[in-house]
């Protein structure tokens, strides 16, 4: 029997396209496209590479979000995933990472047996890197985050985990959760044939009731964290002109100022 792989994906606004209105000091979001989250594309790519090698591998992409996230899932199918499922329900809206992981863990339980779950390390809109590990915790499986290399031998997996100052090599058994960083691979493009096939596939939408999740553990009210305030930082005024007698003193005074700001 082939491997069963689950990929967790999120549709996100392309935050690099977001600009700040210099007059009103607010976010300009017109024309900001929604995309498949970058790290999630690496997660899917790694699953697809396993499928390239072992064609009887089955890849299911799951996501939680509003119905428009179907567009992103179609993209995943066009890249080569076998099926895609969207958990979408008002009752799931406003979930923080804890509540989101409860919902996605319920989706995965409903899907039944799996061997590997791939997720992106983090989403570019929230940058928390929490949902992957929290799903693993809710499912009671081991995890490796920041995966930059992947090898498989039977049911044993050896991965490279990136650290700030180097890396670790880690061995573990399936089933497990691995979170991908962009060093892991280069995601493929959709193919014309893939797009054609993908548009023919149906993407099931599962409600909170469908996934059988305890409603006290999902959604806005159940979430332990809330946004207290959010704001755009005030535009910064003109900076400081460094003074000094001669180049050496100028250089030194600059470094003192940078040090005081904790940036070096």
């Amino acid at each position: 029997m082939g491997l069963k792989i689950i990929v967790c994906a999120k549709q996100v606004p392309d935050t690099t396209e977001v600009k700040i209105d210099p007059v009103k000091n607010t976010l300009i979001r017109e024309g900001v496209p929604s995309i498949l989250n970058n790290d999630d594309a690496n997660a899917l790519e790694e699953a697809l590479r396993i499928k390239d090698k072992y064609p009887d591998t089955h890849i299911t992409v799951i996501s939680m979000g509003p119905l428009q996230a179907k567009d992103m899932l179609i993209e995943c199918l066009a890249m080569g995933a076998d099926e895609a499922i969207l958990a979408s329900d008002r009752k799931l809206g406003g979930s923080d990472t804890w509540a989101t992981s409860n919902a996605l863990a319920a989706v995965i339980r409903k899907l039944g047996h799996f061997d590997i779950i791939f997720a992106g390390r983090q989403a570019i809109d929230g940058d928390t890197a929490q949902v992957g590990p929290q799903i693993a915790e809710k499912l009671g499986i081991p995890q490796v985050t920041y995966v930059s290399e992947f090898e498989m031998d039977g049911d044993t997996i050896i991965v490279k985990r990136a650290l700030e100052d180097g890396y670790e090599r880690i061995r573990l058994k399936m089933p497990c959760m691995l979170t991908a960083i962009k060093e892991l691979n280069k995601p493929r493009y959709m193919t014309i044939g893939g797009i054609y096939e993908a548009t023919k596939k149906e993407i099931p939408v599962w409600t909170a009731e469908d996934i059988g999740v305890d409603l006290n553990t999902v959604g806005l009210e159940a979430s332990p964290t809330n946004v207290f305030r959010s704001f755009t930082p005030a535009p910064k005024g003109k900076g400081i002109m460094i003074e000094g007698d001669g180049e050496k003193e100028l250089a030194r005074n600059l470094l003192i100022n940078l040090k005081a700001k904790h940036v070096i």
Binding site: T97, W98, P133, Q143, T145
Partner: peptide
């Protein structure tokens, strides 16, 4: 918020069923 802190904290928070704010 290092590669280790961001691996450990979400797991601990999920086991304790409490909130965690990143970064």
């Amino acid at each position: 918020a290092t590669h280790i802190g961001r691996d450990l904290a979400p797991r601990v928070a999920a086991r304790l069923d409490t909130g965690l704010t990143a970064d």
